[in-house]
């Protein structure tokens, strides 16, 4: 909320503000000053761009250097000796053992957690927007209140709860937790988007004798498709990137990639041949999603940053 209201739908690719045409000719000193300033701006931004790029490039290059080579110097030495780079860390990592399984667990956790959250939130959001039931507004106010509850509050109690029903340490247990803490924002977002639909449209459908379920499925849901897409992307990345919840709720055979990599941190330095390619694999999917669905991603991230 703190963000959602102010979140304008600006994709990154907005054009810079146009310079008004037909500006009167400026005196030379002013033009010189402007030139210096623009040089300064360019320099500052180039330095910033390098600072933002280098860490990730470093990870990529590190992930391509075999263990023996990595011990001989920093990753930047590979820039002058590209012969250092091989795919052997990746083939070793993906060839078997824990990483493919952890990667698969990540998928098994993130996909259901996303679909379930979005499905439940779409239904509830529609009901909060267009159906009448006792206490509707008060209950929704409660959902608004839950928006900022930190996941940390749920860790101990839900672990107990899931332990009691035998879900603790399983993939469904992790999924369930993510659904619970994804719901407040998801319901909030869906309800607000359903409200954007003109009442007359729904009224007309009702007049035509459409049932509420059919209206929801064939009219409301398609109209709210952009919101559904944003929500899917946001929730998917949230769960894919999660470490804390899985650290507690996943068992040894259900741990996702983040938890597996975390368990390798103890020998940091000596096992960069696992950590660097592992981390790079784990960020490939989010970055790919980001690049493909930029617009939705930014809307989702902006609206969801309250979490």
């Amino acid at each position: 909320m703190t963000t959602t209201q102010a979140a304008p739908s600006v994709p990154i690719t907005t054009a810079p503000a146009p310079v008004p045409a037909g500006r009167p000719a400026l005196p030379l000193t002013t033009r010189l000053a402007a030139l210096t300033r623009s040089g300064l701006v360019q320099t500052v931004l180039i330095v910033a761009a390098v600072a933002w790029l280098v860490p990730t490039v470093g990870l990529l290059v590190s992930s391509l250097r075999p263990k023996q080579v990595a011990a001989t110097g920093g990753w930047w030495t590979a820039l002058t000796e590209p012969a250092q780079l091989t795919l052997q860390n990746y083939t070793a990592l993906l060839g078997g053992g824990d990483v493919p399984e952890a990667l698969w667990n990540t998928v098994l956790i993130s996909v259901p957690a996303t679909l379930l959250t979005v499905a439940l939130a779409a239904g509830a959001g529609y009901a909060f927007a267009w159906m009448r039931f006792p206490g509707r507004d008060a209950v929704f106010l409660g959902v608004v209140g839950l928006l900022v509850v930190p996941v940390q509050v749920g860790l101990i109690p839900v672990a107990k709860l899931e332990g009691a029903v035998g879900l603790f340490g399983t993939i469904p247990g992790v999924v369930l937790f993510h659904v619970g803490y994804g719901l407040p924002f998801a319901v909030f977002l869906m309800r607000n988007h359903f409200l954007e639909i003109p009442a007359e449209l729904l009224e007309a459908a009702r007049m035509d004798g459409c049932g509420e379920w059919r209206i929801f499925r064939t009219l409301a849901l398609p109209l709210a498709a952009p919101a559904v897409a944003s929500l899917c992307i946001f929730q998917f990345l949230w769960v894919w990137n999660d470490m804390l919840v899985a650290l507690i709720f996943a068992g040894n055979d259900s741990q996702p990639l983040t938890v597996y990599l975390q368990s390798q941190m103890r020998q940091f330095g000596s096992n960069m041949d696992i950590l660097a390619p592992g981390a790079f694999l784990s960020l490939l999917v989010p970055v790919g999603v980001f690049l493909c669905f930029q617009r939705f991603f930014i809307q989702g991230a902006m609206a969801g940053s309250v979490k």
């Binding site: 990730t56 990345l237 990137n241 983040t258 981390a279 784990s282 960020l283 970055v287 999603v289």
Partner: peptide, 10 residues
Amino acid sequence: FMPMAISFLA
């Protein structure tokens, strides 16, 4: 903006 998509772990 890209680092936003990356996990805290990575």
